[in-house]
Structure formats: structure tokens, C-alpha cells
Amino acid sequence: MKGLYCDGSSIRLRDDLPMPTPGPGEIRLSVRIVGICDTDLQLAKGYMGFRGVIGHEFVGQTDAGQRVTAEINNACHVCPTCRDGRPGHCPHRTVLGILGHDGAMAEHVVVPTVNLHEIPDELDDREAVFIEPLAAAFRITEQLVLDPGVKIAILGDGKLGMLCAWVARTTGAQVSVIGKHPSKLALAGEAINTYRLDEVSTLAKTFDVVVDCTGSHSGFPTALGLVRPCGTVVLKTTVAGTYTVNLAGIVIDEVRVIGSRCGPFPKAISALVNRQVSVRPLIAAEFPLDEAESAFRAASEKGARKILIHVNPASA
């Protein structure tokens, strides 16, 4: 089988991967299309020490021809954490293409059937591949109350930053996006305020909520400078390596810090079907699987938008 393999510090296309075999409660899917996200880029730098096929944003197809995608946390569903309704934090879980489970940047992937979500006919593959990251953006709305009285800043004008901004906009909150790239900030839309990073000195301690979507070591300290006393910082991206942060400001200003990861697939699917969020402007380029290494290099370029890989175009 052909797929993009991570050896813990780099990635390469291989054609000698074993065909995955479904275990109890699992299904093997033919992969139609997969997206490269910033977590994949971090994995290639050593994040999590992952070895295996990467990729978790995907559209697959069953043997019966049904298009599906899958949640990425593979929980045991029997431990106390799972029974308490937190399967995404199951201590025994594997995570698709991230932790102990091969991902979807290959011709086939195996996932638990309980994690499957059917893709409506209204969505084409290029839209449906965004379900997982859009669900992650919706997770913020489960963790915080956002309404027209809330001033929220999205720090980072990348793919996840824009998804978080568009989701926050659906709540009526006062949304601002702060980034480095005028061309990317322009994607935010008229209902969202935009600022270049070098303009934020006047915005210090003015936001109720700041969401760090930078994937950078400088993101968290910058977010702490933007959030008001008794406000909330949401950490939305992962970074390979360790932070060095002065925690005094968090204590003095009584700032809440929330980690935010995976979110509700049904909300993401509904938002795409109802055209509350349009993801097509985020697509930069598309590659066949045979050019996956080139696709990964394109995704690694500074300021890159979403790169898609068509894996089984005959079935798409």
C-alpha cells in the first residue's frame, strides 16, 4: 500500500506499507482525499514522537460506496473517563495519525465504526475534508459562552484561525483576527475586524477572550498581552518543543487558560451544509498521492493555505 510515512523526524512517501486489517468494531475505508494540517507539520518535526502514516482530516469511502469521515480519538468506551462522557480524553485512546494509530494519508485507513459520520450529498470532497478542523473550531463554543457582548480575538490568520473566526462570528460575538499576512486577513470578511500583528500595541488587555491559533512559541505570550484581566486565553494549536512563559501575569490578572482540541462533527457538518461557513477560500493547491512529498513541502511554506492530497481519484 502507498502512503505518507512519518519516522519521528521527517516524512516520506512509501509504496511498501502493509494493508491495514480491521480489528473488532473497525472498518477499512478507501481514502478519497486528505488535508494537511499544522499538526501534521509538527509531527514531522518530532511532536509526540509519532511513527506511522500521518493524516486525520479526510474523506473515505466504504465498500458500499458511502462517503464518510471519522472522529480521530479511538477510545476504549469502558474506562471511568469514557463512562463519564469524556471519550476524547480516554487514557487508553489512540489518535488517528497522531498517537498509536496509522492515519489517512494512504490508500486505505482503518477506523472504529463508532467514529464514522456520513457525508451529505450537498458537500463535495473538497468541502467535507474540512469537517474535522471545523469541528475543532466549534469546540470553543462548547467551552465558552459567546454572544454579542463578547469581544474575542483570534490570534493567527492561518487555516484554523480563520475557521475559529468564522465559527465565532456565527454566535454574534465581536470578532477580530490578528495576523501577519494582509492577503490572508482579507479572507476574514466584512463582519470581522482585522489587525496586523505590528498594530496590536493599542489593543493590550482589551479582549474578553483570545484564541491562540498561531502554532508558534510566541503565540501564548502575545495572547496574554491581549486578554483583559479576568479574561480567557484558549490554546488551540500544538507546538513541537516546550514553552518558557512567565506565569506571574496569569496570576495577577486572574486569567483563565483553556486547552481546546477536538469538537462536534455534527455541528461542523451542519454549518457546511447550511453555508454558515465557506471553506473553499482556504484551499491553496491540490496534489495526487504520488506527489505527497511535494504537497507536504508546499504546506510547510510560511503563510500556506490548505493543501489537499487526492488519494484514490478513481473513486472520488
Rank of each mutant, 00 (worst) to 15 (best):
K2H: 13
Y5E: 05
S9T: 14
P24C: 15
S30K: 15
R32F: 01
C37W: 00
C37M: 02
D40P: 02
L43M: 05
I54Y: 01
H56E: 02
F58W: 10
V59Q: 12
E71L: 11
V78T: 12
P80C: 05
R86N: 14
C90R: 09
P91A: 07
H92F: 14
G100Q: 07
A104S: 13
A106N: 01
V110E: 07
P112A: 02
V114F: 14
N115G: 08
E118I: 09
P120D: 06
F130E: 01
I131R: 04
P133E: 03
L134N: 03
A135V: 04
A136C: 15
A137I: 11
F138S: 03
Q143V: 07
I154F: 01
L155V: 13
A165M: 13
A168K: 04
G172I: 04
T194C: 08
T194G: 05
D198Y: 05
A204F: 00
V209F: 03
V210A: 00
V210N: 01
H217C: 00
G219M: 07
G219Q: 11
F220A: 09
V227T: 07
R228C: 11
P229S: 06
V233C: 02
L235Y: 01
L235N: 13
T237C: 07
T238E: 06
T244Q: 15
G249D: 13
E254Y: 04
E254C: 03
K267C: 00
K267S: 11
S278R: 14
V279F: 00
P281A: 09
L282V: 06
A285K: 13
F296P: 05
K302R: 14
I309A: 00
V311A: 13
